[in-house]
């Protein structure tokens, strides 16, 4: 079941956020969480094996069964915002490295 797999990815990313001390690994954990959430939202719109991708060639095709297009549109938005937050987080990580010369949170505390 793909929904359980996506929930597993989500909690895996959360666990990574709890135990990691490295800033880069924290950002990677955040991205794993994000991907789990995207797969979960996409899976909400799944309507069955005979459903088609929501692309039509004329209005007569609307009698066919399509998957839900709304979760796909929302995930498109979420992916772009994920790119933005990841870029901002990596920029912060780079400026942290320039100041402390380490990515580890404990070593940062010692040197401060």
């Amino acid at each position: 079941m793909i929904q359980y797999a996506s929930i597993f990815l989500f909690v895996l990313g959360l666990y990574g956020l709890f135990i990691n001390k490295n800033v880069i690994k924290l950002i990677v954990s955040l991205n794993v969480m994000e991907i789990g959430l995207f797969i979960f939202i996409i899976s909400i719109g799944y309507v069955g094996d005979d459903a088609l991708a929501p692309i039509i060639s004329s209005t007569q095709d609307l009698a066919l069964i399509y998957v839900d297009p709304l979760p796909q549109a929302l995930v498109l938005t979420a992916i772009v915002i994920g790119v933005g937050t990841t870029a901002l987080a990596l920029a912060l990580a780079k400026s942290i490295y320039n100041t402390y010369h380490t990515f580890d949170l404990d070593e940062m505390e010692e040197s401060a």
Partner: peptide, 23 residues
């Protein structure tokens, strides 16, 4: 989502890709 897939709303936007018609 059923409203996005209805014929009147699809013709109002006129996009073949229904995800684009929502976005």
């Amino acid at each position: 989502s059923g409203l996005y897939l209805s014929e009147t709303n699809v013709e109002e936007v006129g996009s073949a890709n229904l995800v684009t018609s929502i976005v």
